Deep mutational scan, measured.
Amino acid sequence: TIEDAIKKLLKLAQKGQPYTFGDFTVTSEEEAKKLAKWLKKQL
């Protein structure tokens, strides 16, 4: 689910690992949080 993807994304971001989700490449926890907010709006 999208919720699971968001959780995984935040965990990876906390470890400092870049994470690619579709067109987004997230390289920081701050970016992960922005992406998570955006994804929730898409639901």
Rank of each mutant, 00 (worst) to 15 (best):
L12G: 02
Q42A: 11
K11G: 09
T27R: 06
G22R: 03
K34T: 05
L9D: 00
L35W: 06
S28F: 13
V26P: 03
I2P: 02
P18L: 11
F21Q: 02
Q14F: 15
I6Y: 04
K8C: 15
L39R: 01
K11L: 13
L43T: 02
T1V: 07
K40D: 04
D4Q: 12
E29D: 06
Q14T: 09
K33V: 10
F21P: 02
L12M: 09
S28D: 05
F24E: 01
D4C: 15
F21R: 01
A32V: 06
Q14A: 14
G16F: 14
D4K: 09
Q42N: 04
A5R: 08
K37W: 11
T27H: 03
A13L: 13
K11Q: 12
V26R: 03
K33W: 13
F21I: 05
A36D: 01
E3L: 14
Q17K: 07
A13T: 05
F21L: 03
K37N: 08
G22I: 13
L35A: 01
L39E: 00
K40N: 04
Q17A: 09
T20F: 13
T1C: 14
L43F: 07
F21V: 05
L43D: 02
T1G: 05
K37G: 05
K40Q: 12
I6G: 00
K41C: 12
L10W: 11
E29R: 09
P18T: 05
T25V: 11
T25A: 06
T20D: 10
K41H: 08
K11D: 08
Y19H: 04
G16N: 06
S28R: 01
L9N: 00
F24M: 03
G22N: 13
D4N: 10
S28L: 11
Q42F: 13
K37D: 08
D23M: 15
T27P: 04
K7E: 09
L43K: 03
T27L: 12
E29W: 14
A32I: 05
I2V: 09
G22K: 04
P18D: 05
K7H: 05
L39S: 00
G22L: 13
K41W: 14
A36M: 12
V26S: 02
K34I: 07
E31V: 15
Q14L: 14
K33Q: 08
K15A: 11
K33Y: 11
W38P: 00
E29K: 08
Q17F: 15
L12Y: 11
Q42R: 12
L9P: 00
K8I: 11
V26A: 06
I2G: 01
T25P: 03
A13S: 05
K33P: 01
K34D: 04
T1R: 10
P18V: 08
A32Y: 05
K41S: 09
K33M: 11
Q17R: 04
A32H: 03
K33I: 14
Q42D: 01
S28G: 04
G22M: 14
I2N: 01
P18C: 15
A13M: 11
T27K: 06
K41T: 06
L10Q: 02
